[in-house]
Design a protein around this nucleic acid. Sequence first.
DNA 1: TAAAAGTCTTAAACTAGTTCATTTTTTTTC
DNA 2: GAAAAAAAATGAACTAGTTTAAGACTTTTA
Lengths: 197, 197
Amino acid sequence: MYYKESHTLLLNNIARFIDLTELEKQKYLSLLTEIKVKKKAFLMQAGDVTKYEYFITKGCLKVYTLDEDGAPHISMFAVEDYWTGDLASFMTKKPTRYFIKATEHSELLGISRTNYDLLFQEIPKFEKFYRILYQRSLISYIRRSNHGISLTAEERYIEFKKKYPKIVNRITQKDLAAYIGITPEFMSKIISKVNRM
Amino acid sequence: MYYKESHTLLLNNIARFIDLTELEKQKYLSLLTEIKVKKKAFLMQAGDVTKYEYFITKGCLKVYTLDEDGAPHISMFAVEDYWTGDLASFMTKKPTRYFIKATEHSELLGISRTNYDLLFQEIPKFEKFYRILYQRSLISYIRRSNHGISLTAEERYIEFKKKYPKIVNRITQKDLAAYIGITPEFMSKIISKVNRM
DNA sequence: TAAAAGTCTTAAACTAGTTCATTTTTTTTC
DNA sequence: GAAAAAAAATGAACTAGTTTAAGACTTTTA
């Protein structure tokens, strides 16, 4: 059976943890919505109740909140083959505090809350898929929330560069600063220092 | 059917997300190991391959790593009705980088990796239980890794006190400092400042 | 219950990271 | 491809949090 590129990417992502029959694959894909976001456009804004969880098939987006002073804090950069959204708002149906903005023209596959619930009824194997997906995300967030607090900004930058070498070149220094948790000015100093070494 | 106190606590924890028959409850409980840890004793040390995931029925433990300088960084305080362990080491069977030490005499129920895998075969409903458990932990870690980076130490202390009022009184200021991510000296200053306000 | 060990407080000198202001460089837009 | 807008670099003055050291208070242990 032939699938378009974006569907193949998603099916491979799922095949890491569970095996689906052709029929199940088609059923699953029928529950998804295709979404395109232009560069600088918002996928989600604070106050929205998020309708979907997203799988990125093309592009790059930044997920962030604004603090009381209006300063952005980026919690992740989402690129191809990543899942994103606001799980809290998606589950509780309460308004999100997050913004998700495309930093490149992006294409996504979204699953609505109704279809997410339906999915577990129709193909119970997906409980396992999400159990493992959340377990792995949890492991990396636990590590990150530890690291974030125990490393200096320079060490966090070096770690990020090592872990996501491709992403570093796709984002601005300013956005990287908002992710690392420092000012753009200090980010600039760190980068010139690290490059000199 | 009568269950002992520790088992009732665990069964109620599970009943938040899934319903079990009496038979399933008994089957589940039979897969668990009872563990006691004296104050100051270790449940786990860096280098160990962790054999269990733990549910705490009594007491308090601190979960931490040591950085290159030997300074501790506490990632959580685990008390009654909490789950703890090192999920990464448990899943990959690689050595852990964590220490888990009892700060009070503690009692736990542990599930081994073998029995964890068996559980999903015997009672597939547990896929759903862990899917939701990990989903919720993930939501709170995502929030925390954001907050950790955007708040000052004083704000993080006030948040912790509001969120875990009971735990604050059970731990030392020194351990709280290692959790907040500051020195004990600065923790002391913050506390006397906040109390004066 | 006395001694030892660990915890908490205070203070002075220090450093990682911020703020504000200005200039240069790069990217976007028409 | 010129003008406008945004991002990056640099530097000086500032602040949140660290380090070191010493004394007071509490808890643990023999």
